[in-house]
Simulated scan of single mutants.
Amino acid sequence: MDRVEDLLHEALSEYAVQGDAYLARVAERMSPGMGRLALVVLIRVDRFGALREADLIAQLRLPAAETRRLVDDLVTRGLAARTGGEAPMLVGLTERARGLLLDAADERRGRILDSLEDFTLEEKEIFARLLAKFVQRDDLVVRSLDLPQRG
């Protein structure tokens, strides 16, 4: 009999593989030839607002040169812009990037709803709470507590 941590590891590993493939497809649709890591930069900037390159480097845990190369590529593609003139230089999204990320979010929501189609409402609520707790994101746990409670 499998241990629960082995089953979770296998499921999460598969989910990570599927997630990487999904990000690569979205990146390619946004701008042909763009890689998954460049999309991750856009997602970070979208989530946190304009960021200093140093903050991006710290968040992504990538070498500074690689992060700067990713930002340079995004600027060339018209998806990111550097602002602030002198140091610290901020990296922000262009309107085009915002629109593409909104389209991707709509698609992602649809895919999630499709995946949850066979779940009951109660199972969806439980899954959301447990996943938020599992990834140790207090902000998600608090928001998941706002889900309707069963009495």
Rank of each mutant, 00 (worst) to 15 (best):
R108D: 08
P63Y: 06
R47P: 11
R108A: 12
E86S: 15
P32M: 08
T76A: 15
R96G: 02
D106Q: 06
S13N: 12
I43F: 01
L7P: 00
G84Q: 09
D55A: 01
L90R: 15
Y15W: 06
R52K: 11
L56Q: 11
V75R: 03
R111H: 06
G49I: 07
A81N: 02
A65K: 04
L23K: 14
H9L: 00
L93I: 07
A27G: 12
T76F: 15
P32Q: 09
V41W: 04
R29G: 10
D6A: 01
R111K: 03
P63R: 13
L101M: 10
R68V: 07
S31Q: 01
M30Y: 05
G33C: 06
R77N: 04
A81Y: 09
M30N: 05
L12S: 05
Q18W: 00
E66N: 01
D20Y: 10
T83E: 11
A87R: 15
L8D: 02
R109Q: 08
R47A: 15
V26L: 14
L56N: 01
R111P: 02
R52E: 15
G35V: 02
L113Q: 02
D20I: 01
G78A: 02
R98C: 12
T94N: 09
L7E: 09
L79R: 01
G78E: 03
E95W: 15
L93N: 12
D73R: 12
R108V: 04
L93Y: 10
R61H: 03
T76W: 12
A11R: 02
G84E: 14
P63I: 03
M34N: 06
A81D: 01
H9A: 09
D114W: 14
R111N: 05
I57Q: 06
R29M: 03
F48M: 04
D73I: 08
L62W: 11
L8F: 07
E28C: 03
A50M: 04
G92I: 04
Q59R: 13
G99P: 11
T94L: 14
A104M: 07
V17H: 10
Y15N: 03
R98L: 12
A21S: 05
D72Y: 11
G99S: 09
G84K: 15
T76C: 03
A64K: 13
L100E: 12
L90F: 14
R111M: 05
L51K: 14
R44Y: 13
A80Y: 06
G92W: 08
L51G: 13
G78N: 05
G78Q: 09
Q59T: 03
G99F: 15
E53P: 01
V75I: 00
E107Y: 13
G85H: 12
V41C: 07
D20C: 03
L79G: 00
E86V: 05
M30C: 08
P63G: 09
L93V: 12
A80G: 10
V71M: 04
R109C: 08
L51W: 02
V75Y: 00
A38W: 09
R82G: 01
V26A: 08
V45N: 12
E53V: 08
A105P: 06
A54R: 15
Y22S: 04
M89T: 04
G35N: 08
E28D: 14
A24K: 14
T76G: 07
R52V: 00
I57S: 10
R77G: 00
R36S: 07
A50K: 10
E107V: 09
R69D: 09
R25A: 11
G92P: 04
S31T: 00
G92K: 07
E95S: 13
E10D: 02
H9K: 04
L8E: 15
E95N: 06
R61Q: 10
